[in-house]
Simulated scan of single mutants.
Amino acid sequence: MNVMIQTPIRKIIHVDMDAFYASVEQRDNPELRGKPLAVGGSAARGVVAAASYEARKFGVHSAMPSITAARKCPDLIFVPPRFDVYKAVSQQIREIFAQYTPLIEPLSLDEAYLDVTENLRGMEIATEIALEIRAKIKQATGLNASAGISYNKFLAKMASDLNKPNGQAVITPRNGAGFVEALPVKKFHGVGPATAERMKKHGIETGADLKSKSLQFLTEHFGKSGPYFYGIARGVDLRQVRPDRIRKSVGAEDTFVQDIDDLERARTELTPLAEKVWRHCAANGISGKTVTLKVKYSDFTQATRSRTSAQPCSDVSDVLESADALLTTVYPFKLPVRLLGVTLSSLTNDPSADDEEQPQLGFDL
């Protein structure tokens, strides 16, 4: 099937703060500067929410179990997160964005898309806007930001990683398709490890491989994501920057190195998933009433179970309790389990998540 895709030429900037949580901690505590730092967790338990660049040199990264991080970097310093501070800094940054465009789509506390095609400053060159924004962020917060500039969201996101930290890159309409063709699909934003592995089984390892597949093939094998993959393989992404974007759910999942058939082991794996979900909720002042458990078996079949409460979850233990109860409903497992996922939906703004009820956890999805 041959599909012609028409797309307007837009000017999109993706701004991404560099090691945001860790950089805030180093800014506020001079004793931490230049040292390997992890926000969240502890040497004995939990997961790393953010790692300083000094820690990343040892292979420490976000979502890594703290015990693994401590093993990779024996001198690693663990610091508890301060979400109230991160939120305040994030608000400073968004006020700077608003000086240039009302079309701002936050993805988390530390990154956002900006559509500057028609901007409040009347500036024609998006790269100059990105430079100004990054300079103002540095002046106002003392923190470094990186940026990607392109004609769509996918490529702007990819570009923001090219010259990190404290840099920016542009991908033009002329070189967008070629950039994608040369890129491994496992580095694509929106292609996780499990999807990359599925693609590999179909002989898809680069953007060029992806481009060689028909829309029909991609839809057949990747469902509703098929048209998106078909487009980005050609450097096309029609998604608009949506300032009114409302997230419908918050989820986390993990594919295991070895399949699990033991209930207690599966229960243990639920804890970091529930923590990841709740950290995002705590950081953004939201909660939800519906907890959904996803179980994928060794033959790739899956089961989902949901529980809805009358009141939104008030802390991570509520999420974990529901997920654990749902897990018992599918045990004994019909086959060994290769993946578990936890999702919180029926989201609502929960004021209690902004103050003393906010858990001291630190993962930013």
Rank of each mutant, 00 (worst) to 15 (best):
F222M: 09
L270A: 04
K211Y: 03
A266H: 11
I246C: 07
E253T: 02
G251I: 03
K224N: 12
V191A: 05
E220L: 06
I204N: 08
K200G: 05
Y230M: 05
W278P: 00
V250C: 07
I260G: 06
K201I: 03
D254P: 05
K213Q: 10
I260E: 09
S225Q: 15
K276Q: 11
K276S: 14
R279E: 15
E197V: 01
G251A: 08
L218Y: 14
E264P: 05
H189N: 14
I260P: 02
Q240T: 00
S214Y: 03
L270S: 12
Y228E: 11
A252C: 04
Q216S: 14
G192F: 05
P272A: 08
S214C: 02
Y228F: 15
G226V: 02
E197K: 06
P227N: 10
Y230N: 08
D244C: 05
Y230C: 08
L215Y: 10
T219V: 04
S214E: 11
P243D: 07
G251V: 03
D262H: 08
A194Q: 12
R242V: 00
I232S: 09
H221R: 13
G231E: 15
A233E: 05
H189P: 10
G192Y: 06
V250L: 07
S214N: 03
V277R: 15
G203T: 02
V241R: 02
G251Q: 09
K276N: 12
P272W: 03
H189D: 09
D209R: 13
G203P: 08
I246F: 05
Y228A: 05
Q258N: 09
F217P: 09
S225R: 15
E264Y: 06
R198K: 15
D261G: 12
D244I: 00
T219S: 14
I260H: 09
D262L: 04
D244A: 08
K213H: 12
L263Y: 13
L215H: 09
L238P: 00
L270I: 00
I204M: 09
H202P: 01
